[in-house]
Nucleic acid binder design. Structure first.
Length: 215
DNA sequence: TCAATGATTAGC
DNA sequence: CTAATCATTGAT
């Protein structure tokens, strides 16, 4: 779908994902987010759309979840209502974007691990590459949780932001796929980069999709 | 107050 | 395989 003059996609009225749809267990929402669109509107009106191709779930009782031990300043958003962003800094270098799920008080979220960006670098105006670093192939531009935030220019200032469109200005929201995503070939497997909860199979990705971080 | 560490990435 | 790089965390 193309960007319209006003900045909001034409299908926004019918395809926006609402908090109620996200108010379920993270491991139930995570596979269903595959094939959905993550839409990033910048302050200047420019819009980026990424097809979600890889997700992971984090939930109560899960030792890998940031909220496993107790509520802290960092993980507080995960304890709140569904439909908000949980963004944190990892390794002092990258940010990771999560969609808060389930009922208030149930600390859980879905990590968006990879996107397939719509359009092209020419249309989107990809942020200039850092000096000394090779530009990635466009299809691999957001193939990893750190790259998702880098590409969409999402930092920790977005932590706690609600997911919904705005007529103008900066905003992030989710849309259901225009065509039914039921036919997607989903793969369920264990999560990546953990030292705890390594056996829990809460990672999902679209089989053979070139934008998936690892296979 | 302090040392350990992490839902990562790029480069060799 | 390793360096980079720092906010958060649980332990003194």
């Amino acid at each position: 779908m193309a960007i319209n003059g006003g900045g909001i996609p034409e299908s926004s009225q019918s395809s926006i994902i609402l908090p109620n749809w996200l108010s379920r267990a993270a491991e139930e929402v995570a596979p269903e987010l595959l094939g959905c669109w993550l839409v990033r509107q910048h302050a200047d009106g420019r819009i980026q759309r990424g097809l979600i191709v890889e997700t992971e779930a984090y939930a109560p009782g899960d030792p890998a979840c940031h909220a496993y031990r107790r509520q802290t300043a960092r993980n507080a958003v995960m304890f709140g209502a569904a439909g908000h962003l949980y963004v944190y800094l990892i390794y002092g270098l990258y940010c990771c974007l999560n969609i808060v799920t389930d009922q208030p008080g149930v600390a859980s979220a879905v990590l968006v691990r990879a996107l397939a960006l719509a359009g092209s670098p020419q249309e989107i105006v990809d942020p200039p590459p850092v000096s000394g670093k090779k530009p990635r192939p466009w299809i691999r531009r957001a193939a990893g949780p750190g790259l998702v935030c880098q590409t969409l220019q999402i930092d920790r200032s977005f932590n706690g932001c609600p997911l919904h469109p705005q007529p103008t200005g900066a905003a992030i929201w989710l849309e259901f796929p225009s065509r039914e995503a039921a036919s997607l070939d989903r793969v369920q497997t264990t999560r990546i980069g953990l030292t705890q909860g390594v056996e829990t199979p809460w990672r999902w990705y679209i089989r053979d999709h070139p934008a998936v971080s690892r296979r």
